[in-house]
Design a protein around this nucleic acid. Sequence first.
DNA 1: TGTGTCACG
DNA 2: ACGTACGTGACACAA
Length: 887
Amino acid sequence: MMATMKKLLLIDGNSVAFRSFYALYNQLDRFTTKDGLHTNAVFVFNNLLDIIVAKEQPDAALVAFDAGKTTFRTKQFDDYKGGRAKTPSELLEQLPLIKRLLDDHGITHYELPDWEADDIIGTMAKAGEEAGWTVTVVTGDRDLTQLTTAAVTVQVTVKGVGELETYTPAHVQEKLGITPAQIVDLKGLMGDTSDNYPGVTKVGEKTALKLLEQFGTMENLYANLDELKPSKMKEHLIEDRDQAFMSKDLATIRQDAPVTIGLSDLAYRGPDIPALRDLYTELEMRQALAKLPADPAAAPTAAAVEASAPAHFVELTAANLETLPAKPGQVSFELEMLDDNYHVSPLIGFFLGTADVTYVSADAELLTNPTLQTWLAQQTLVVFDAKRNQVAAHRLGLELPPIDFDVLLASYLLNPDQNSNDFGQIAQDHDYQLAFDADVYGKGAKRAVPEQPALFAHFAAKAQALATLTPHLIADLKDQNQFDLFTDMELPLAQVLARMEMQGITLDQARLRDMGKQFSQTIKVLEEKIYGEAGVKFNLNSPKQLGEILFEKLNLPVIKKTKTGYSTSVEVLDQLRGGHPIVQDILDYRAVAKLNSTYVTGLLKAVLPDGKIHTRYLQTLTQTGRLSSVDPNMQNIPARDEGKQIRRAFVPSQPGWQIFSSDYSQIELRVLAHISGDENMQEAFREDRDIHANTAMKIFNLDSPDQVTPDMRRQAKATNFGIVYGISDFGLAKNIGISRKQAKAFIDSYFEQYPKVHDYMDKMVQVARDQGYVETLFHRRRYLNQIHSRNFNLRQFAERTAMNTPIQGSAADIIKVAMINMQQMLEAEHLQSRMLLQVHDELIFEGPEAEMATLAKLVPKVMDSAVKLAIPLKVESSYGPDWFQAK
DNA sequence: TGTGTCACG
DNA sequence: ACGTACGTGACACAA
């Protein structure tokens, strides 16, 4: 019986490292250790190594590297590889790490002065083949495919390093129509721009392949040049003869390099797990670390610790309530739930962490015990997510005493990136080990309450984490000058939001269903019409199928492509409108289908048994300090065109009541006028001028407001928006359909007219560069690591963000202050009216008709006096029997 | 789960 | 020479 053939794996180290580096080049920042070492290439190289080794299971392996800049080829031809960009330092610093990685993987690496990695590989491949082994070569360089033989396979990385293309002699033949050995002839004739050698003038791949088809090799070609008819090409061939043979020689990978190693030195030793663990730890490669087999000596996971050595806890029951400490103190509290949505989630228990003991219970109802309530009211409460606990407690008929600290809110203020709603994650962000909820409760369909010991252990661990983290976070908030922001704004706001969410807004379901019926009919009609126009039935909601109909069947011009195919977005369809009647019908269909699925079906699904919609405001999500709204999103209810009718379904909860709405006018531009200190812009607001018309006058150089046409105002308005977003001429041009040059002219004169706005933009970018973050009026922070990125796009994005965040974020701060003051005012004035919704610059209330006049005075007053700026804030109000009419 | 699309400020 | 306006969430489709 024949012995299994031995396997040799040869990797072109430089080329694969280079490909690895650029595969994650745009993620360079993400792959940086705390010491500033880049690791993206190590990360990719490591993944590739795992994949190849697992697949090939080699008996021996070698990774070859270039030894230095000069080789026998550079001596032969000065300009060999000349003109190549310098290897970036971010990659150079990773080469030693990759070599260490190889050591720890038990793979030999080797380099030889004067010789390239290619030649080492060529030489070893030959040695392997002669010894009767099968050889696999891995590289990012297609030139190495010249090495393929019956025994040698070459795998070339494609799409970064995401895939390997396998070259056998047959595959080379199929792709190029020549044998592997002819590749050097091909290179000799056509040259190589990346290695910078010339070949024959005017001969490219096509011509070279044709010649080789006829003559087989360069030697044979030149021996039989007579057979070629006289032509320019023939002249070039004759003229460049020496150059061509030199190029062929340069392209030829040597198989006789004087290597000082043999097959026996290359035995694959297998990974040294502890060494790899050290390396991964040092390089902060958590993913790779996680894949390593468990280290018996290492610390077990947080979840395992909790389960095996739980912190001390006592199960609380109605019978042992008197054992709670008599002396008031700080208590870590949580009313635990299984699901995100605290309006409906099952309650699974609670804990009370005191100085000595953590009391736990799987019976949420026990919280309602009066003795416990009295006790709780005397304590200082520390929680993770105050609003969540408040709302859930309310479902038990309880109002929690004031909460003193919220670890989630604090963490978010310290750095809005640290906003996970999983306590385990937040704890880890602050270097404290706590099991993730997902590990204790499971996720998806498997989510369930665990056995009691594990549940209680997790409770106790959380209580401990709250107690430990709280003083640190308080100190950090004070360090960052954010303690007031926390105590005076976010924590009180959590209470206000809790009340709004619990209150909910009433949905007139019958009315919405009626609208739904109408929409469904319109949809049916449009569907039939569109199928008729297309000539086939297809899935209208599938951008893929729609694209095929429009651009392949109906041959409409392709305006824009997406990653996956043709773009069929409004912008595109708008331009195609004249091309075919189907286009308008599709636009109409899309509009109605959206209303029906998202705003009729979607909203109806979100109604709770009380007939109301209870959204949840995410207070710790956005990077700017705005709120967001989910389940359902109440901040994107249609406000324009036909869709606005949806708002008719939002009605007061009681007969005789009205919906009342107030919104800030131009709050972001007013904030900009304030923080930039620009006198021209401030003057416009002080005199309550139409800011867009004012801008139009400035950028179009007009003398009087009468000269501003509606179109000028529209363009000026877009420019004002653009400025707030951190403008680019391209963006503005695209948005208002003018030339880029024109847009640039607008921006230039804008900055001339509002010079301090220009200064502000420059200053924010500089601030971001210097301190790594920008701040709002109330010291909300956003870190912008990408501001130093070498990647143009990422850097530019960070710069725009630096300009926009203080504006958007300060506006968010202001309305938050207004909300807190408003809630206090409603209570102080003993009004029945309630605040229901916030939509970024707008507050929506409901109340008795008789209170409308009061609100109309009170709400604008509270909103415009939320902060004192250099210019006044303006608020507009209205009310009516539903949300549509309160506008 | 990622992508395209579209709703809001 | 590059690709490009800020911040969100939900739905449907196609893997």
